[in-house]
Design a protein around this nucleic acid. Structure first.
Length: 141
RNA sequence: CGUCGCUGCCGGACGGCCGCGUCGCGGUUCGCCGCGCCGAGGAAAGUCCGGGCUCCGCAGGGUAUGGUGGCUGGCAAAUCCAGCCGUCUCGCGUGGCGGCGGGAUAGGGACAGUGCAACAGAAAACAAACCGCCUCGGUGGCUUCGGUCACCGAGGUAAGGGCGAAACGGUGGGGUAAGAGCCCACCGCGGACGUCGCAAGACGGACGGCACGGCAAACCCCACCAGGAGCAAGCCUAGAACGUGGAAAGGCGCGACCCGCGCCAUUCGAUCCACAGGUCAGGCGCACGAUCCCUUCCGGCAACGGCGGGGACGAGAGAAAUGGCCGUCCAGGCCGUCCGUCACCAUGCGGCCGGUUGGACAGGACCCGGCUUAUAGGCAGCCCCCGCAC
RNA sequence: CGGGGCGUAGCUCAGCUUGGCUAGAGCGCUACGUUCGGGACGUAGAGGUCGCAGGUUCAAAUCCUGUCGCCCCGA
């Protein structure tokens, strides 16, 4: 099984992040929020999943801690989640600092929130029809 | 032996699997793939100082502003480091000084000026009379007619009382109506000058005759230092645009001000305003340097410096890479158990087995030197003489 | 990278300029009064290491230095 994690598997630009944030397909937990957006390549092929992680200084003032949180999420994505999420861009946004020894619980939370977000539709309050620039609403795989 | 304190150092090692970043080589269906090297700290942190580097045409003068404040040395430089001096303080010692040892120290100037000092107290800064003490005058009482007491008034007096953080030298003697550096001795204070020291200062001291109180981490004065911005500095390449309307005689260049200097412009119009248009592109800067490690010799009390020899290149990316699982070792802690060593006990040392913990503070963003702060545990040295044993 | 500000009673703030007289105000809290009871009102009272550590001074919330925490600007 491929467990790599390379540049094309990440959200890299502000545009990527903005696209995921505006999709409104999300699920929130105590310590973090998971956002999803579907993605297709030009030829219609299913794109590999991409991950973006956001940890602000408000979550923790210590750089070490912020790095550690990113690594936890990245490791989980790399080892088990990336193949199930093919065709999706995922963004994990931390709201507060989880307990220092709570890695297992954090992993469970992420899995649960992902399931919730996948079931959720594009968002209950759809923007005014005809206003959005021709985006295709994502379909849950 | 342990502990406290201070100083310095270390702050896991090796290996396996999966994974990440730069670079190099090879391959490629141009998506990427394979192999190899290297890949966070002593504080990478706070950003408190100092530099390097880069640009601002020149860095020139003055003012302002800010900083520094014993001396000498060290360093590229410094609010850093070392040594020394002064002051304060603690301990030891002495009859008392001198002395010895430790600690702290932002430590120029209070005869340039302005200002501040609550409460208490008579009085708080060119001194001053509340009580007291003394003299003189007046009135009254008593009288042994010498005086004495009370009150009022005019003066003298800083020795005594009490206040305070601080009261215009201290002690003793002379002196006096009572007193006073008024005079004298010793001490304190100021101090021309001399000697020693590179210097801060140290020692001696004619003489003065008490005058000169405290606070400048109050304003301030003096001396010295500082041009400004910061790698989003800045340089190069590619690409887009190089239009419209209005105001306009001076504007801009250093961003506190003035001077000096320079540049652009004066209706074909510098510049300013509004609109329109463009920009989230790539490379360099970017890591071989006041570099790091080991070392002979020399100079210095030390910080540190010099000549020489050997060895090492150790992240540099774009919001930004070091992680996960496991094994062995190693290290320490705690508990339980057993054995050995010294003549014995305690302590200690060494060894065996079982269980638990892999630990603290913490992650580079142009780079260095220092400072400060955080830090589980361990090692070494010094100090102390607190505890235990002999 | 550069710059600025704040920390005082449970809460929101004043006092810092020019150190001392006194750490103060409002809300809240406690007790009593008033009311049949509550609210409002009246009277009395409690409550503060002035973020922390040093220093200057006779004396520091105030001045100086260091440090911790929080907030806000500019590029």
């Amino acid at each position: 099984m491929d467990q790599g994690f390379q540049p094309h598997q990440r959200l890299r630009t502000g545009r990527d992040y903005g696209r995921v944030m505006h999709k409104q397909q999300k699920a929130a937990g105590r310590h973090l929020v998971v956002l999803l957006a579907p993605r297709r390549l030009k030829g219609g092929a299913i794109a590999p999943a991409r991950l973006g992680i956001m940890v602000s200084t408000k979550v923790s003032k210590l750089a070490v801690r912020r790095h550690q949180l990113k690594r936890w999420v990245r490791e989980l994505f790399r080892t088990e989640l990336q193949h199930d999420l093919a065709g999706w861009d995922v963004c994990v946004l931390f709201r507060s600092d989880p307990p220092a020894d709570g890695r297992k619980r954090l992993d469970d939370d992420i899995r649960a929130l992902l399931r919730k977000a996948l079931v959720a539709n594009d968002g209950p309050r759809r923007p005014r029809p005809g206003n959005s620039p021709g985006k295709a609403p994502g379909k849950a795989p």
